[in-house]
Simulated scan of single mutants.
Amino acid sequence: MRIVATSPLHPEAEDLLRQTHDYVAAPDPRPETLRDWIGAADGIIVRSKLPPDIFDAAPRLKACVRHGVGLDFIPVEAATAKGIPVANLLEANRQGVVEYVVGAALSLARDFTGLDRRLRRDGWQARDGYHGVELAGRTLGVVGCGRIGRGVADAMRAAFGMRVIGYDTAPPRPGDTIEQVSLRAVFEQADVITLHLPSTAETRDLIGADLLSRMRPGALLVNAARGDLVDEAALVAGLAQGRPAAAAIDVFRTEPPEADHPFLTAPNLLLTPHIAGGTQESLLRMSLQSAEAMLRILQGQRPDSLVNPSVWDQHLTRLGAGT
């Protein structure tokens, strides 16, 4: 069968796929390119956002696997309507994102990037007036208490003895060690707030001017989840007013951002290009696990994380008929 990736995978994963199938990577992630390349594909591994009509151009497609966790890159309802199984990876980049959030919070608390710039510009006097803060004993607010959010909570609690409060759109889990509070309470009480919700109709622009204005003096914000969780204009205005005092942003509403995006000139803002989960180790895990999930689906074996289980019987029938 023919398997297409929207961009190249780790060489080990590509070698694995080529052992039994015809594997290719699309030359670029533009919608028109992906529509052309998916026409003869039996499976697609998704590393970039698919156009909403992509599955109309894929009459042979039998499997769609997300190279990661977030499903906003895939029109899942359209795949389900076509009887195409969709799988994602729940754990592959967890550690990378957890370590990013811990590092970003430390960098903001100690102002490493600002100190670096001032030292290069002003010399040793950059230390004059420096007021870094410690995280020990402070309150961490986790917005989205899934695997990654709980991983950050565990790490920050273990390293710094932080009190952890959290808000989630899902009901609390039995035995959860995160103290569940309202979203408003997270913003009113936490010294560091980290976002870990998926992008859905309910969560887009969830973090706006009202919540930002409620942040404690000196409070910090880290977003390594999805860019559209935050009202970007409200965040720029909030940074100018010291609410939050500083922020680390790994994700943007539109990626890549335009050259005149206001984040690029906003004060007290650490920016990274959507690499929180992109460590050498996690990229290898994601590539291998997405390749393994693809092979399982094309062999009629249910993957570990099947997003739309209602199509599985239909998928097995298609495989059996060779269509």
Rank of each mutant, 00 (worst) to 15 (best):
V142L: 10
L206M: 13
V97A: 10
G70K: 04
V164I: 07
I84P: 00
V69T: 08
G300W: 03
V102K: 11
T169W: 00
R110T: 12
G277C: 08
D128A: 14
A190I: 11
V69S: 00
M1S: 14
T33M: 04
P256D: 09
L221R: 12
T177F: 07
L89M: 10
L197H: 00
I207G: 02
G151I: 08
E255T: 07
Y167T: 09
V101T: 14
I84N: 01
N88W: 06
Q241I: 03
L212G: 01
V133D: 05
Q125A: 15
P8S: 14
V97K: 09
A201V: 15
M215H: 11
L34H: 02
R318G: 06
A246N: 05
A104N: 12
V86M: 11
G151K: 13
R120M: 04
G227W: 07
A58M: 00
L9I: 06
P273A: 13
I148F: 11
G83K: 09
L264D: 01
V230Y: 00
I54H: 01
S107I: 06
T33Y: 01
G132P: 15
L115I: 10
G146T: 11
A87H: 01
Q189L: 08
F73Y: 14
W124G: 08
R110I: 03
V251E: 08
A185E: 15
L264F: 13
L288R: 11
V192Q: 09
M215T: 15
H261G: 06
P217G: 07
A25W: 02
A225L: 06
A293E: 15
L140C: 06
K62I: 07
R118Q: 09
A245I: 11
H21L: 12
D231F: 02
S199I: 05
T279K: 02
H196M: 09
G277W: 08
A126P: 01
T272M: 06
P198H: 13
G103H: 03
G320F: 03
R214Q: 15
A25V: 09
G227P: 00
D36P: 01
S199Q: 12
V24K: 09
D260K: 07
G218N: 06
G114K: 04
P267T: 14
P257S: 12
T200A: 08
I207V: 15
A259Q: 10
A225S: 14
R147A: 15
P27G: 12
L195N: 08
R66Q: 11
V101R: 13
P172T: 07
L306E: 01
E99F: 00
T33G: 02
D250P: 10
G227Y: 04
A126W: 05
N308W: 02
L212C: 02
D111C: 04
E255Y: 14
A237R: 13
A233Y: 01
R184T: 10
V311K: 03
A159P: 02
E12R: 15
H67W: 08
Y167G: 07
K49E: 13
E91Q: 14
A5T: 14
T20F: 04
F263D: 04
A321N: 12
R163S: 11
A245Y: 15
V142H: 08
